[in-house]
Design a protein around this nucleic acid. Structure first.
Length: 429
DNA sequence: TCTGGGGTCCTAGGACCC
DNA sequence: TCTGGGGTCCTAGGACCC
C-alpha cells in the first residue's frame, strides 16, 4: 500500500480585512468589514467585526447605521491590493515546497509528502512565522492525509486557540480525532453546503464524525459520487490530487450589477462592451479564442413587486475569435434582440465559452482568413499598452464613458502596493 | 436608495442512433 | 413479471467553492 500523503492547507485569516489593516495603522483594534462590488454585502470581517456579531454576506445597507455607531469601518473591495498581497504570500510559500496549488486568492494547498522526515508542526510554524514577517499577514495551517482533511484541520487551527494556528490531524490519536469530529457540524466539511447539510441532517448525520462513519456506497446512492469521495477522504483515502498547474478556463464570465438602475439601451450597450473587453483580454492572455458568446440582462430579482424581465441568449460564432471589436458587435446584436424598453435593468453580463487555443483555428467554409491579421495585431498591441500603462489606457470606444451603469466603490482604499501615486508614506519622528 | 462575481462538476432527461 | 438496450451528445439546472 502506498504511504499516506501529507497535505497542508495554508489559509490567510480574514484576508481582505487583514490586507486593509496592514496599510492603515489607524484601523488597528477596530472592527473592519470589506464589502462586495457596489458596496453590496459584507464579504470579509476582521476579528473585531466578527466579535460584535456581524454576519458574513449580510447586505451592508441593512446594518450600516448600527455598525457605524459601533465604530465599524466599512471599505469597498480593493482587488488590486488583494491580488498583489496574495502573490506575495504564494511566493513565500513556494520556498517551502515545489508542489503547491493556489486554490483561491487566500488559500494554497502544499504537498508535504516529501517532508515526512520533518516534524510537520514545526515546519508549519516556520511557514506562519515567515509569512507574518515577510508579508505581514496572519495565516493558519492545517495538515492531513487528504485535501479534505487538511481543510478541516485548517478550520480547527483557526477556531481552536489551543492549536495556536497549526493543526496536524495526523499527530492526534484516534479518540481525540473522534471527539473533535463529533463536536464539529457536518457543514464545516469541504463540499458539504447548506442543501446537502440539511438532507444529511434529516438522515441523522449532523457531525463530521457521523459523516466519516457512513458508508460511501450508500452515500453515493443517496447523493453523488462527489459526496462519497468526500467520505473516503474523511477516512484518509486521498481521492483529490494536488493541481499544481492551473488548467485553462473553459469559460470566461464578466458581469456586474449597476451602480444605479438602468433604463436606456445605450447604457446597456456600453456596459456589455466593457464586460466583453475585460473578458476578451483574459481570453487572449490565456491564448484562446471563443466559439460562443452569451449575453445576460436582468431586472432586480430582489424587488418582486417591480416588473421583472430576464433574458440569457447564447450565440455560436461562425468563426471562433478573440477580437474584442468583433465580440462587442456580436454582443450588441444579441442585445438588440432581447432588449425590452420600460424595464429597470439591474445587471448585465457576458460569457465566452467553447474556448480553444488560437493555434487550432481553421479557415471557415468560405475559405476566408479566420481573423483579420491586422486586427489581431492591433489587439495584441492594445494588450501590451494596457499591461504597461494600466488597464483601460486603450479601449474600445463602444465601452464609453457614460456614468449610468458604473458600479459604486465609495469606500475604496488606496492601491498601496500597485500604484506609485498611492504608495503609503512612513514618517520617522 | 441599498442584496457580489466568477468559476467547476455532476446529474437527469430528451433526442438520436444502431 | 419482462413490451430492447445501450451508447452518445446536448442542455438545463442544481450543488458546491471562495
Amino acid at each position: 500500500m502506498a504511504e499516506a500523503r501529507r497535505f497542508a492547507l495554508v489559509d490567510c485569516n480574514n484576508f481582505y480585512a487583514s490586507c486593509e489593516k496592514l496599510f492603515a495603522p489607524t484601523l488597528a483594534g477596530r472592527p473592519v468589514v470589506v464589502l462586495s462590488n457596489n458596496d453590496g454585502c459584507v464579504v470579509a470581517r476582521s476579528a473585531e467585526a466578527k466579535a460584535i456579531g456581524i454576519a458574513m454576506g449580510v447586505p451592508w445597507f441593512k446594518i450600516a447605521a448600527t455598525a457605524e455607531s459601533q465604530g465599524v469601518v466599512a471599505l469597498s473591495s480593493n482587488y488590486a491590493l488583494y491580488a498583489d498581497m496574495s502573490n506575495r504570500v504564494v511566493e513565500v510559500l513556494s520556498a517551502f515546497t515545489p508542489d503547491l496549488e493556489v486554490y483561491s486568492i487566500d488559500e494554497s494547498f502544499l504537498d508535504l509528502s516529501g517532508f515526512r522526515h520533518l516534524d510537520l508542526v514545526t515546519y508549519a510554524c516556520q511557514i506562519r512565522k515567515r509569512v507574518a514577517r515577510w508579508v505581514g499577514l496572519p495565516v493558519c495551517v492545517g495538515i492531513g492525509p487528504t485535501k479534505t482533511l487538511a481543510k478541516l484541520a485548517n478550520h480547527f487551527a483557526k477556531k481552536r486557540p489551543s492549536f495556536e494556528g497549526v493543526c496536524d490531524l495526523m499527530s492526534l490519536d484516534e479518540p481525540t480525532l473522534a471527539h473533535l469530529f463529533s463536536e464539529t457540524p457536518v457543514d464545516e466539511v469541504w463540499g458539504v453546503g447548506r442543501r446537502i447539510a440539511t438532507r444529511l441532517s434529516e438522515m441523522g448525520i449532523e457531525t463530521v464524525e457521523a459523516l466519516r462513519r457512513s458508508d460511501p456506497v450508500w452515500i453515493r446512492e443517496q447523493f453523488s459520487v462527489v459526496l462519497s469521495r468526500t467520505v473516503r477522504e474523511l477516512n484518509g483515502a486521498s481521492c483529490l490530487s494536488l493541481e499544481a498547474v492551473t488548467p485553462p478556463k473553459q469559460q470566461i464570465m464578466a458581469s456586474r450589477s449597476f451602480g444605479s438602475l438602468v433604463f436606456d439601451v445605450e447604457d446597456l450597450r456600453e456596459a456589455l462592451a466593457h464586460h466583453v473587453s475585460r473578458a476578451a483580454e483574459k481570453l487572449r492572455f490565456q491564448g484562446d479564442e471563443a466559439g460562443a458568446l452569451t449575453v445576460m440582462i436582468r431586472t432586480n430579482a430582489f424587488k418582486p413587486a417591480e416588473p421583472q424581465y430576464q433574458r440569457t441568449v447564447t450565440l455560436p460564432l461562425a468563426t471562433p475569435t478573440s477580437d474584442t471589436l468583433h465580440l462587442i458587435a456580436v454582443a450588441h446584436r444579441i442585445l438588440d434582440d432581447i432588449f425590452r424598453p420600460g424595464f429597470a435593468y439591474h445587471k448585465a453580463g457576458i460569457m465566452l465559452s467553447e474556448l480553444r487555443p488560437t493555434t487550432a483555428q481553421q479557415a471557415n467554409l468560405f475559405g476566408l482568413p479566420p481573423q483579420d491579421a491586422r486586427r489581431q495585431a492591433a489587439m495584441l498591441a492594445m494588450d501590451e499598452i494596457n499591461r504597461k500603462w494600466g488597464r483601460g489606457t486603450v479601449r474600445a470606444s463602444a465601452a464609453g464613458h457614460r456614468a449610468g451603469w458604473q458600479m459604486r466603490r465609495d469606500r475604496l482604499s488606496p492601491a498601496y502596493t500597485t500604484s506609485w501615486s498611492d504608495l503609503p508614506t512612513a514618517l520617522a519622528l
